[in-house]
Structure formats: C-alpha cells, structure tokens
Nucleic acid binder design. Structure first.
Length: 952
RNA sequence: GCCGGAGUGGCGGAAUGGCAGACGCGCGCGACUCAAAAUCGCGUCCCGCAAGGGGUGAGGGUUCGAGUCCCUCCUCCGGCACCA
C-alpha cells in the first residue's frame, strides 16, 4: 500500500485542473447557471488569512456540489486592489503601488491555487487595472449626469500632525491610527453620491431578497426610517421660520423652546438679530473644534447657547419660546432643528433642567394591556374606575412597601378604588388601613397628575378603563391592627429598597408611577393629551395627525442614512473624471476619453493642504475644458475603495468587454448572483453601496434585475487566542502555507469546515487539525487497500446509513452547516471501516467527500479504477424507495418523562402493539404495578411515555 | 440606552418539543513494539462500589415530556448610539 502523500497528490490534481481549465464557466445559455460569489480580497502584504479560507472553501463546496448536480457554475475571483494599506506602504518605502499590488496578488494567487479552490481564473479582474476602472469612472459619470453626484462642503477627519485627511476606518477612538494624534474636523468640498434618494427602495426591497436576517436588520437600522411631522416655528419679528422635525407632534403644546444645530444655516442668518452674536459665533466655532470623542463622551453635559433677544412662536399655543443653538442636535439629520419638549423627552428634559427652562406636562400616560389574560377584549365597552395607588414609605428606613397578589402574581403597590364623593387622599388612607393594617399614617400627598390604564378585569369579566392617582404615604411607626382574614390571604407584603422595587414591579403603569417617586418625572411614552387646547382629551396617535394638520405641518419619513462622501484626498484610487473650468464650472470628462489614467508620481505623500498628491503634478492637473476649450484643472481627489467593489460582480459576467462594462446578454444570463457570502462587517457599507449602484444601473436599464444578490450569507470571524482579531501588528496571524505543507490542503479545508458553526466566530487552534488529517488518512487506508473481493450487495443497515448520510450532507451544505456535514462524513467512514463495504458504498462516500477534500477524493476515485469520471458520476441522491418501510427503530420507554429503557419496535407498529410490548418490559412493568397508570403517549419511532401516579 | 446573537463535559461543539453530550480534540487503560512514534481496541458529564440519583447561565411557567416554546433576570459577544 502506498502511503498518503498530500504534497504529491495535491500538486498532481491542481496541475490537472489548471491544464484542463476544469473550472472555466462557459457562456452557454442553454445550460442552467449558478453564480456563486465570495467577496474578492484586498491583496494585502500579509498574504492569505485563515478567515479567507473559511468563507471561500464553504462556497467552493457549494460550487463543486452544483457542478456535480449539472449546473453551469460561475465561481470567479479578482482583486480589490485600490486602498490604503498599499498606499501607506508606498509612502513608507517609495515603492510604486502597482508593483506592490503585483507582488501581493502573485502571492495570493499561488496560495489560493494551493488550496484547490475551484475559481475560474480566466475571469480574474483587478480594480486598479485601467481597463477595469475605466468603467468605474464611466458609472460615476452616469451618476453625475443623473444628478446623483454633487459637490458639497463636509467635515473630514484631519490629522494635524501627519497633515493628512483620514478615512473613518483610520480613526481609532478619535485618534489617528498611525500617530495617535487626536483627530480634528476640517471642512472640505467633496464629491457626494446621493444614496439617500434610494433610501426608501433600499429599505423596502430588502423584503424581496434572501439575506440572513441579521444583515437585513442591520441594513434596516442603518437606513433608519422614522415617520413624523415637519412643523414651522415662525421667528418673531422676522420672515424666517424654523422648521423642526418631530415624531411626536402630539406633544407640540409642551414645546417650550426650539434648538438649531450649530451647523444650521439659520444660525448665521439669525445671529445679527440677537444681542449675543459674538458669543453664538464662538460657540459654533468651538463645537467644530471639539473632537469626536469629546462630543460623544458618555454622560457629557449638554451644552448650548440662547439666542438672546429673539424668539419663535409655538404654532400650537401661539406662545413665544426661546431659541437655542446646541450641539446635541445634529445638523445632518432631518431639518437640523427640533422643538424642545422637556416633560416628554429625556434629552430635552436634561437640557431644560440645566438651562432652567419651563417644563410643561401635556401627555398623561395611558397603558393598554395587549397580551396575557388581562389583555383588552376587542369590541367590548370599557367600565371607567377611579383608583388610588398608595406608595408607602417605611417610617425609618429608605424602603417602600411592595405588594404581591398571590393569585395573579401581580406585583406593585397597595391599590384600591375611590368611592363616590371621596378624596384621593382619604381613599388611600382607607385602603392602606384595610389592606395592611398600619395605624399611624403620618403624611399623605398626591404626587403628579393621573395616569390611565386599559385592561381586562378577569374577575368581573369586563374591560376596565382605570384612572390612577398616585398617593405617597408616610407611616409614623410600624404599629398594626389585625386585618380582615379574607384580605389577609390575598397578598403578601415586602419592604423593598428603591433598587429592589424597580425590579419588583411587574406592570408598566405601576413602573411609570414609581419613576415619579424616585425623581424621574420625564415621560416619553404616549397617552392622553392635556393642556393642549382643543386637542386635550385625545389620544396620542389621533392627536399626531390632527395637530400636524392644524399647524400646517407636513407628515413625512426621514432617514438616518446619509449621502456617501465619495472623495478621498489620496493617490491610490480611481481618479474622479471631472474637470473644473474657470468659465463652465464642473465639466465631466467626455466618455470617449476614459479612462482617466492614474499618473505615476515620485512621492505618494498627500500635500500639506490635505490635497491629493495628484494636485502637485502640473502636467496632469492642467488641462483644457472639454466644453469651451479654455483653461481648466482636473479633479485631484480619487474615489474611495468602495467604488470598484460596488459593481465587480457585474464585470465577472463579461470581463474582457471593451465596449461596455458588460454586455446585456451576458448579464441577462448570469445575474443576479445566486449566492453571495461575505463578512458581516460589510453589511452596511459595501453591501448597501453595491445595492445602490445596482439599482441605479437598473433604472438606466443596464442591468436586468433590481437587486444584485439573490441570497446573502455570512461567515463568522476566525479570531486569535484570547478572542482578539488577527492582525499583523499583533503578530497573531496564521499563515496557511505552513499548514498546507504539513497537513495538506484537504485536511486544512476539512478542518476549517469542522471548526465550528459557520456563521459564528471561532477561536483558532492549531491542535485540532490533526483530527481531520487522521480522517483523511483513514479514508486513504480504507480505500487504497480496496480489492474486488468486497461484497457487492449492501446490507439494509448500510443502505440506511448511506441514504441518511446523503440526505444529511446535502441539506447541511445548502444551509452551510459545514461542521455537521464533516461530522457525518466521519460517521459514515467509521461505519464503512467497521463493516465490509461494497464498492458502491465507497464510491458514494468519495462523491460526498469530493467537494470538501477534492484532491484526495479524486485520487482515490482514480485508484478504485472506476470507469466513469467523478465529475460525470454526479452528486449522489437518496434512492426513492429506501428501506424505511421495514425499518425498526429504537424507542425510548419513559415513566413520567424519564427514560427507563429502550426497545426495538417496527416503525409501523400500532399503538396497541407498541404499548403491549412496552408494558412487558422488565424495567417498566414493576413500576407500572407499583403505581396507577394514568395515561400513555406513543410517538412512533421515538418514544413511549407512561404517566403514572403514586409511584412508590 | 436601542437592535441582534450566544450561554450545554477539560476543550471545539451535536441534538424537526421525544434516549442530552453525536463527531472531533485532549486525557486514561490496553494491544502491537526491545522501545518509542504511528496505528488499532476500550473508556471518558457529575455523585455513587452498586442500585440509583443529579445535570444544558439563574428563577418561574406551558406540556405526558423542555437544552429547544413563553415570562422575569444575569453574563458574554457583535452592531448602532444625543437620529428628535
């Protein structure tokens, strides 16, 4: 027997696949296609990461299975080559980024091939290749021509030491990634892409795609729609209006001030009308210099400045309200201005308190019970009741009396109805005496206004509409009188500290009242309007629309999503194909002059002014205007590295096309991507950006589908020891080359699939790879010693094992449960080893193994001397009429849910037969005899459970 | 704070509401060997000699039966975070 030599075998098969172009996708539209995609890598100097292997092997298994199933598979690879690390390396070494990229992609290509990944190398693309970025620039021009690319002033991250603009991902905890200097904000004109125009569609169309739920949720949160009203507050003595956005127009009558964001244009317009213009301008300036960490620091006190001498009119109350400028209001969200409603918004409450502004209650809480046995019954009238809630303070300690109702589990306070003509305080005293027996009530006071609750009163079988008044009761001492016995059994009492009480309370209405006792006055929920003119008495939902209408406001949806800052003051990216003419303004480069080639430079350092190194190349920068022929300059900013990756999956369909980014025929055949796997870290940037570009191209009828990816899955990260991310700087990166050399690509592939649930993060460990290596060796030993003397007919047990394995592995691959698929392969091999397998069984095993460990499977297949080529043999399927008809199964016998024995029973056994047999079992019959059998449950093929009372 | 995900042996982890710990790593014992490695066999949740009992972050609930479903809470991880 020849030993298993992974080096020899893997080299042989990799050469064979390369030579035969085994994985080239044919543009053969007569065959059913499958487009399987992984995120193309950034070719960093670190080489391939074990994390790449996890994702790519999983989809390689999918691609290989699809080929065996007869599909025409496109599984492409390329390079997302533009980007910061290469540029930073170039700055440090002076080496041309093109050369660095070439070196790195060579390393990646060699490593990928050594893993036996079945990529179609004939479609390899590179985003930094002019034949590729020509089309990236072309798409940008289309965006510009359709009004989706525009220039705007934005704040960029500026490192004052390196004198360089930083991308968000280079800012770590508010400091420059390289030198640690605190990052400042600097204003700069930048190209922007109007992704917000697509916000609604990007949000709604998530319903039409098969993404993992978490990715959908994250994108939805990121896009962040929010419905509300835009309401104008006129500025007194001026024709200006402050437009605020609010989701709670029902609280308008409680708006006691308005706030403008420091960036709001009205700030500078209104400042001259104020008495403190200078101070306002100083505040605005100061905000801009505040660093990111300071601004977002936790528990930071809200700052702001009053615009003295001017005020606005609350369109509801018609009263004058103060105008503030404060940086807790964001300039980039909604209208950049808010109305301050301190009583019903936590942030406004905090601000109003620090500025001494009026706090006005306009909503009384209404809690509607919607689930559980006391949920409001629809179509049933309400009976109204007034009630008191008595919060009783301990005579000496800082404790309050908690009440637990034994029957329902309701936990709260002493509570009771107010009788006809009774005062709330009187009612509270009476209830406290009756329920608790406390005699010496020292003080009683009403705390705040009423709150309301709607629920179903189970005892009386009616819908209740209760109005609670909170009464605070202090005791003189702990002396008690005996209470009525029928009261006594109803509840128990506990003295609780304020913290314990917060956890003790079970119902929301009681929680709201308790909040008042511990000083939380602000209530941000909905309820019934008060102090709101003609709207008083309405409920929040109804009042929202009515008040908006009354003050001439607009009901609309705003999004958290911001437009995409598309400029980078860098070198290693696609030049933005725009020209600034002194006469004509911004003029796009004519399409027939594309690509605008990224010129070679001598140094890659950005300039002191923060402009791209391109700005210093005068022969490139100075050009003529395509429109008027006059003097003009090129845009020196480049695109972000999200640009090339926003459409690369389209280029794979037709990578050599010089006339179009891809031909309509090829796109029609190959798109959409059927299965796209990538990291969760790309959910809100890359994935959203490419959906945006795709939808834009769809609107121009250049792509056939409205969504690029039909299905999206995600792999969990592979972490280094201690749960840290692997990075070169921490020196904890695992180089796969050594593992492939020692254990072989097949063992490594199997190990990465076996390491844990595919979608969860795992911590890398070197020791366990020995397990999959042993598995491969055992398969090798078993099959390479195979002789023709083997049995030719499978035992029923073998048939069962085989069909179960086929079904399990097939479905596990589809749901990326690769760890249990490998486990099943191991179980199957264990079985084959312990029996005398048939040739057919061994062949099926190899076909199941081949997507996971293609080299060794191919070699053993060949060794078996099978006449059909493995690719032709196809993916195994379970025989239609399997042996399940006759099957017997192990059935657990339980007494009161506890397993006492196991017996073999035919699947088809009737309940009577099964129970009869079970009752006779030595572990069962004595136990049945000792008690009284109440009932028996029979689940065929699974379990028999005897419910026995009074078992001794 | 808000939105997700996860808590199961020494470790990675299995388990359509139906025999908890599959499969693998590690460990222990044995076989082979002069010996070791490799390989093979057996064992390996906890308490107990055993019979038996206990056990899936904690506490309740639903069910004949709960790791799995419901409620309350704790811990860890990820994302967002003054979004009006």
């Amino acid at each position: 027997m020849e030993g298993y030599d992974h080096r020899k075998i893997e080299k042989k098969w990799q050469e064979k696949w390369e030579h035969e172009k085994a994985f080239q996708a044919k543009d053969d539209t007569s065959k059913e296609k499958e487009y399987v995609l992984i995120e193309f890598p950034y070719p960093s100097g670190d080489g391939l990461h074990v994390g790449h292997i996890r994702s790519w092997t999983a989809l390689d298994i999918v691609a290989r299975k699809r080929r065996l199933e007869g599909k025409n598979v496109l599984y492409p690879i390329g390079w997302d080559a533009f980007g910061l690390p290469t540029e930073n390396y170039a700055i440090k070494t002076g080496k041309d980024p093109r050369v660095v990229t070439k070196e790195n992609t060579d390393i990646f290509r060699r490593q990928i091939k050594s893993l036996g990944l079945s990529f179609d190398w004939s479609r390899e693309i590179n985003t930094s290749d002019p034949t590729y970025y020509k089309w990236t620039q072309w798409i940008f021009l289309q965006l510009y021509k359709h009004g989706l690319a525009y220039k705007a002033k934005t704040l960029i991250n500026w490192c004052p030491k390196d004198k360089i603009g930083l991308a968000n991902e280079e800012v770590i905890d508010g400091a420059c990634e390289r030198c640690g200097t605190l990052v400042q904000k600097r204003e700069k004109e930048q190209w922007m892409l109007a992704i917000t125009k697509y916000a609604k569609r990007l949000y709604e169309d998530l319903d039409s795609v098969n993404y993992i739920e978490q990715a959908k949720i994250q994108q939805r949160n990121w896009i962040g729609p929010s419905e509300g009203a835009q309401i104008a507050f006129p500025v007194l003595g001026s024709d200006k209006k402050i437009e605020v956005f609010t989701t709670r127009p029902d609280t308008l009558y409680g708006a006691t001030y308005v706030v403008l964001a420091p960036e709001h244009p009205l700030v500078l317009e209104l400042a001259p009308l104020t008495k403190n213009k200078g101070a306002i301008e100083t505040y605005v300036k100061a905000t801009r210099q505040t660093s990111e960490i300071e601004r977002t620091a936790e528990a930071r006190e809200k700052t702001g400045i009053l615009m003295e001498g001017i005020c606005a009119i609350n369109p509801g109350t018609k009263e004058a309200v103060a105008i503030f400028v404060a940086d807790y209001v964001l300039g980039s969200y909604a209208t950049g201005a808010i109305m301050g409603v301190p009583h019903h918004d936590e942030r406004d409450f905090e601000f109003a308190k620090s500025k001494g502004l009026p706090i006005k209650e306009v909503i009384e809480a209404l809690v509607v019970r919607e689930q559980g046995e006391d949920a409001v019954k629809k179509d049933m009238p309400f009976t109204e009741r007034r009630a008191v809630v008595a919060v009783i303070k301990h005579p000496s300690k800082d404790k309050y009396l908690g009440v637990r109702w034994k029957r329902t589990g309701w936990q709260g306070f002493v509570i009771g109805g107010i009788e006809e003509g009774e005062e709330a305080q009187e009612a509270a005293k009476r209830e406290v005496r009756e329920e608790t027996g406390y005699k010496n009530i020292r003080a009683v006071g009403i705390l705040g206004g009423p709150i309301h609750a709607q629920f179903y009163q189970t005892l009386k079988a009616e819908n209740r509409f209760a109005h609670f008044q909170l009464v605070l009761v202090e005791l003189g001492d702990e002396e008690k009188t005996e209470i009525a016995p029928e009261e006594k059994v109803l509840h128990e009492f506990l003295w609780l500290s304020p913290e314990k009480m917060t956890a003790f309370i079970t119902h929301r209405d009681m929680q709201i009242l308790w909040d008042r006792v511990i000083g939380k006055i602000c209530y941000s929920g909905t309820g019934i309007l008060v102090n709101s003119g003609q709207f008083s008495g309405l409920q929040s939902e109804e009042a929202k629309k009515k008040i908006t209408e009354f003050v001439g406001g607009v009901w609309l949806t705003v999004f958290k999503l911001r437009d995409w800052v598309f400029s980078r003051q860098r070198y290693w990216g696609e030049p933005i194909p725009m020209i600034l003419c002194k006469k004509c303004g911004w003029v796009p480069v004519p399409e027939d002059e594309l690509p605008v080639i990224l010129p070679e430079v001598t140094h890659y350092q950005p300039t002191d002014t923060g402009e791209s190194p391109l700005a210093t190349i005068s022969h490139w920068i100075h050009t003529t205007c395509p429109s008027c022929g006059g003097e003009a300059t090129r845009e020196s900013d480049v695109m972000p590295n999200w640009a090339g990756s926003s459409w690369y999956y389209l280029r794979y369909c037709d990578p050599k096309n010089t006339k179009e980014f891809a031909s309509p025929e090829h796109l029609k055949y190959w798109t959409p991507v059927d299965w796209y796997n990538g990291g969760m870290e790309h959910t809100t940037l890359h994935l959203l950006y490419s959906r945006f570009w795709h939808k834009f191209l769809y609107d121009l009828a250049l792509v056939p589908t409205s969504e690029p990816y039909a299905k999206r899955t995600s792999h969990g990260l592979i972490l280094a020891k201690g749960g840290e991310k692997m990075s070169k700087s921490k020196g904890n990166v695992i180089n796969p080359d050594g593992l492939i050399e020692r254990f072989g690509a097949d063992s490594l592939r199997l190990y990465e699939m076996f390491i844990g649930p595919f979608d969860q993060p795992v911590i890398w460990s070197d020791t366990n790879i020995i397990g999959t290596r042993r598995f491969v060796e055992r398969a090798w030993r078993l099959i390479s010693t195979f002789t023709q003397h083997q049995k030719t007919v499978m035992s029923p047990e073998a048939v069962r094992m085989m069909s179960h394995s086929i079904a399990k592995i097939s479905s596990d691959i589809e749901s990326l449960k690769m760890n249990t698929a490998v486990s099943q392969l191991m179980i199957l091999l264990n079985h084959l080893e312990s029996t005398t397998p048939t040739m057919q069984a061994l062949e099926t095993f190899l076909r199941l193994l081949s997507p996971f460990a293609p080299h060794v499977a191919g070699e053993l297949w060949e060794k078996m001397g099978t006449t059909t080529a493995m690719e032709k043999a196809g993916w195994p399927t379970t025989p239609k009429e399997s042996a399940t008809e006759l099957e017997v199964a192990l059935v657990a016998l339980q007494i009161n849910g506890k397993v006492r024995a196991t017996i073999e029973l035919p699947l088809k056994a009737s309940e009577r037969e099964a129970l009869e047999k079970a009752r006779l079992h030595p572990a069962i019959s004595p136990r049945l005899a000792r008690g009284k059998e109440v009932r028996a449950v029979y689940v065929p093929g699974r379990v028999i459970n005897f419910v026995v009372s009074d078992v001794a």
